[in-house]
Amino acid sequence: MTVTVERARELTGGTLLALLGGGAALKALTSQHIGTPANMGPGFFPVVLGICLALCGLGVAAAALGKSLDQAAVPRVNVRAVALVTLSVALFALTIRPLGMVPAAFLLVLTAGFADPRTKPLTLVLLAGGLAAISWLVFIVALGMPLRAFAF
């Protein structure tokens, strides 16, 4: 069981990199001038790197097929954490222009904070308010960053 987990992981990683490298090499090959070693075009270096990456990826995948492997546990992903942190950053990106930095910061902290189920809602609201206020004071008042605190 554990061996197959590791094998699946290495195969996935290797294949992804091989595809990425191959894709990059192909893209550079088709859309850029390659040139010669003495006079390289913009495509030369990317093509070489893409091929290198593809070879590395294939190597990683091949190594996983060939040899005996270390023991590995099934990796546990905290889906709630990843999803809420992602959502909080996305919300910030979407709201900072229309609403301003302070409301965006408040929303971000509130959303991200829910990633840990142990935090109580009231604590979270206080934390969000506090951090929004601090970031307004530090970044806009003290450091003078060109961001608007409130856009409305």
């Binding site: 942190v85 992602t86 909080s88 950053v89 996305a90 910030f92 990106a93 979407l94 900072i96 222009r97 930095m101 910061a105 971000l108 902290v109 991200a112 904070g113 990633a115 840990d116 142990r118 935090t119 604590t123 979270l124 934390l127 969000a128 951090l131 970031s135 970044f139 450091l143 960053m145 060109p146 961001l147």
Partner: peptide, 30 residues
């Protein structure tokens, strides 16, 4: 840590914004 990490995420985002003032950079960060 539950009280710290929202702050880390917030400062990450503000920091990214402060350099280029572009939300594109925020999406890149994500």
């Amino acid at each position: 840590y539950p009280l710290m990490f929202p702050g880390i995420v917030l400062f990450t985002c503000i920091g990214v914004m402060s350099v280029g003032n572009s939300t594109f950079d925020l999406w890149m960060t994500l």
